[in-house]
Computed example of a mutant assay.
Amino acid sequence: MTRAKVGPNARIATMIVTFRPAAVADLIRPMLRPTSRPARAPATVRGLLALILPMIVTLGAVFAPMSAARAQASAPQAAAVPTGATAGATADAAAKRDFEGERKSIGDARAWTNYRFATAERACYSKFLVNRCIEQAQDVQREELHVLRKRELDVGNAERAERAATRDREQAIRNAEFEASQPGRAANEAASRASYDRKQQEQQLRDAQRAGEAPARTANAQAFQQKQADFDARVKAAQQSGAEQARQRQENVKAFQDKQRQAADRQRDLDERRERAKQNQNSGGNTPSPFGF
């Protein structure tokens, strides 16, 4: 694949955009550090550097979109259309985008802008037009903060878009899984319906069998009731027979007692007669009869 030709303006813009503020800070920080014997010239140099550096950053922010658009317009059409591998790599890079790192970079750039404004503001107090110098520094700070704020909003929009894309992919995966499991669910539902119908038929058969066995159960119940009635009758007859036997035993006991009493009375009469006969014999009378008469 042939490389697109890049013009001089694009190269300058690329140099400005890729110009690292941290490296510039490392270069000019020794110049901005106050010495033991301050002079007019170093303060002027520091003021010029504080004013030139924001202009460089602003020019980079202005020329970057122009150079990118020109490079894209001058690139061949074949290079503009990414292949499947390039698209996959681009998607992976977008998926692995470090938003926290970008926010940290924006925060560092904001801190660097505020530091340069504070430095420029201190340098302005050594000039004749102090207010004008501070206003210019504030204008530069506002422009840079505006660019950083725009970048921050772009990062937030990109993060929200990525989250939405992730949610869409997950929802698409869930939908695909749902659609893929649809035949299995249909089969399970059909099996459940068949099992339910089979159980209903078995219950109907049991109900019909019970209905057919109802007369037999009724006859069995009647026979049981008859047997229970016969048993109750036999129990009642046995109770009556026992009561009659008990009464007869009482009567027999009473008759036996009467006989015993009569026998005792007869024995007492016999003893009395014998005693009388013995007395008569002792008195010289006739020999008494052994039977007492």
Rank of each mutant, 00 (worst) to 15 (best):
Thr83Ser: 15
Ala61Thr: 04
Ala137Lys: 00
Ser126Ala: 14
Gln267Thr: 05
Glu179Tyr: 00
Arg142Met: 15
Asn114Val: 04
Leu129Ser: 10
Asn9Val: 08
Gly47Cys: 02
Arg116Leu: 12
Arg110Cys: 09
Phe117Val: 03
Phe19Gln: 02
Ile12Ser: 03
Glu159Pro: 04
Ala165Ser: 15
Leu148Met: 12
Leu48Glu: 07
Ala190Tyr: 01
Arg37Thr: 04
Asp207Phe: 06
Ala243Leu: 10
Gln248Cys: 05
Trp112Met: 14
Ala158Val: 07
Val253Arg: 14
Val253Pro: 03
Asn9Thr: 09
Lys227His: 06
Cys133Pro: 02
Gln209Glu: 14
Met15Asn: 09
Ala194Asn: 15
Leu53Pro: 00
Ser192His: 13
Tyr115Gln: 10
Ala69Phe: 06
Arg160Pro: 07
Ala237Ser: 13
Met31His: 04
Ala39Arg: 14
Arg132Pro: 02
Pro65His: 00
Thr166Tyr: 08
Glu162His: 13
Pro290Ser: 14
Phe19Glu: 01
Phe19Ser: 04
Arg29His: 06
Ala78Arg: 06
Asp269Asn: 11
Val17Thr: 04
Arg70Gln: 08
Ala164Trp: 04
Tyr125Ala: 13
Ser241Asp: 13
Ala118Val: 05
Leu32Pro: 00
Arg249Thr: 12
Trp112Tyr: 14
Gln72Trp: 10
Ile52Asn: 10
Ala93Asn: 10
Ala255Met: 09
Gln228Ala: 15
Cys133Asn: 04
Arg33Ala: 11
Ala229Leu: 13
Glu121Asn: 07
Met15Pro: 02
Pro38Thr: 06
Cys124Leu: 01
Glu177Ala: 13
Glu189Trp: 00
Gln72Tyr: 11
Ala73Arg: 15
Glu179Met: 11
Arg97Val: 05
Asn252Ala: 15
Phe256Lys: 13
Ala23Ile: 10
Lys278Asn: 09
Ile16Cys: 05
Ser36Gly: 15
Ala165Gly: 14
Lys254His: 09
Thr166Trp: 09
Glu213Asp: 15
Gln182Ile: 04
Ile16His: 01
Gln239Tyr: 05
Gln239Ile: 08
Lys254Phe: 02
Ala111Ile: 08
Gln226Glu: 12
Val24His: 01
Thr86Arg: 07
Phe291Asn: 14
Lys278Ala: 10
Glu135Arg: 15
Glu100Tyr: 00
Phe63Thr: 11
Val140Arg: 01
Gly88Met: 07
Glu121Lys: 06
Val17Leu: 06
Asn157Arg: 07
Gln250Val: 09
Ala61Leu: 08
Pro21Lys: 00
Thr58Gln: 04
Ala137Arg: 00
Ala123Asn: 02
Ser181Lys: 06
Pro76Asp: 10
Ala87Met: 13
Arg169Pro: 07
Ala164Lys: 14
Arg3Phe: 07
Gln279Thr: 15
Leu59Asp: 01
Arg40Trp: 02
Ala255Trp: 01
Lys127Asp: 03
Ile52Tyr: 05
Gln200Gly: 09
Gln201Pro: 09
Ala264Phe: 00
Asn252Glu: 14
Ala211Asn: 08
Gln226Val: 11
Phe293Arg: 15
Gln240Thr: 09
Arg97Trp: 02
Glu121Met: 03
Val147Ala: 07
Ala94Gly: 08
Lys278Cys: 05
Phe293Lys: 14
Arg103Thr: 03
Ala118Cys: 07
Ala75Arg: 06
Ile28Phe: 10
Pro34Trp: 00
Ser283Thr: 03
